[in-house]
Design a binder for these strands. Structure first.
Lengths: 241, 241
DNA sequence: TATAATTAGTGTGTAATAGACACTAAATAG
DNA sequence: CTATTTAGTGTCTATTACACACTAATTATA
């Protein structure tokens, strides 16, 4: 940070507000969803917005993001990553607001996620059916978040953060397909994920006819790491700072 | 950003200071260097720091970064990219400071870059010979910047931003080697860069004995774009948010 | 008990790529 | 003419991606 001019006192400067916005993704009904809140007053009254709030003076940025996340969804200990900082003057008509955006990935669990389906002011939206307009510059933020999510999926185990503890390989493949927006080859997917050696066999799930579904889980010693296994080699995140 | 609680006025909140810090890289004496400034007063008096300063209230973040960059080096119109936002409480003992860090790549040009070799308070440091300790959390920022630089080099034409307009392919290869910290194969490099079709032949440079050096330049229509050609397929940036 | 349905894989061929390394070609100074 | 320097090209091997066909296992139910 900071100066090299010889005199100054930071307290003399006029200061912008700093907020954190958290783009919360989940997998729900086999589709990628994002949590939005409806604004109840000016500015952008009635518009949907990415949840967020002000950073307290004694609070780290990531801590503020976790607090917002928990206030909004009731969940803790989820995957959280800083996305980008948006700070154009005029993006909030009230005052200068600089917003540090985060991405969170949560496992969908109706019990825990206190967001109800009928709630009129907090709702999960499928990323393919977003409201036509969002508050502030939140469309840009959301677009950037989705792009980042896609590109990181290629070389990390991010997808596991969206699945329940036990899942089948076809479910995992479906999750990849949802985020990437394209079909993957079943045989190649099986091979690739097995070779990566990140899965651990658990039990079976029996339902309907057909061979029972084998359930797996992410190897415990790796479950919290950002283990890198690079699913595919091509593609590159398009946006950059 | 923003609340969904029903009443509030952002102006009521206590606000942190917001600064931009710019990690400025250049290639100088065939080595990757970074610009640091020596602090003249408390806190961290006498320590080297990444140049930066406060964001004005009516100024976009990137604009503030460009202003700082120009104040420090006199150059404009260079490659600039947002790196990460550092905001731990206590990182500046004076007050809460949230720092949006940027990376800048500038072409070394003794004429333009007004930083002299003997200057005691503004200096280029080779990234392999940094001062033992930096002010604030600037070691972390710098480490992150170098890591990002390496990883982006792999799939972008970033390296061109460090070279003069006209350069030989061996110089370009040397630049890659400097940043990646490893040797590359000459033949493969030639092939790869030619196939990418981003270079344009210009003149020759004759000096000493030996076949004259062919000089190239980056194709004009692509010089300002972040054209992607992915130099190698392996490797992944380790750090993530 | 036969069969349809479903998950769970394996086999294989092609084309592209990376990476190592040897080799040729061109131009110059002395 | 020769040493030196840049500028490439040739080629072999191992790996990878990708497409797509194929087999195997297990179950409900007709």
């Amino acid at each position: 940070m900071a100066d090299d001019a010889s005199t100054y006192d930071p307290s003399k400067y006029e200061r912008p507000s700093v907020t954190v916005d958290v783009v919360i993704f989940t997998l729900y009904n086999r589709e990628l969803h994002v949590l939005l809140v409806k604004r109840g007053h000016w500015p952008y009254e009635g518009y949907w917005a990415i949840p967020g709030g002000f950073v307290n003076m004694d609070e780290a940025l990531e801590q503020a993001a976790r607090r917002e996340l928990e206030e909004e969804t009731g969940v803790r200990d989820v995957y959280l990553e800083q996305l980008f900082t948006f700070g154009d003057p005029g993006r909030d008509p009230r005052t200068r607001v600089i917003s540090v955006a985060y991405i969170a990935l949560v496992r969908f669990d109706a019990q825990k996620l206190r967001v109800s389906d009928e709630s009129t002011d907090v709702r999960w939206f499928p990323v393919r059916e977003l409201p036509p307009a969002l508050a502030f510059d939140h469309e840009k933020i959301l677009e950037f978040a989705i792009s980042r999510l896609r590109s990181k999926l290629e070389y990390t185990t991010l997808a596991f953060q969206l699945l329940p503890e036990y899942f089948s390989i076809l479910e995992l493949k479906h999750t990849y397909e949802q985020i990437l927006g394209e079909k993957l080859d079943k045989g190649n997917f099986y091979r690739k994920i097995k070779e990566a050696d990140v899965l651990e066999e658990t039990t079976f799930m029996r339902e309907g006819r057909g061979r029972p579904t084998r359930l797996w889980r992410f190897k415990p010693n790796r479950s919290d790491k950002q283990f890198v296994f690079r699913w595919r080699e091509d593609r590159v995140e398009s946006k950059s700072g």
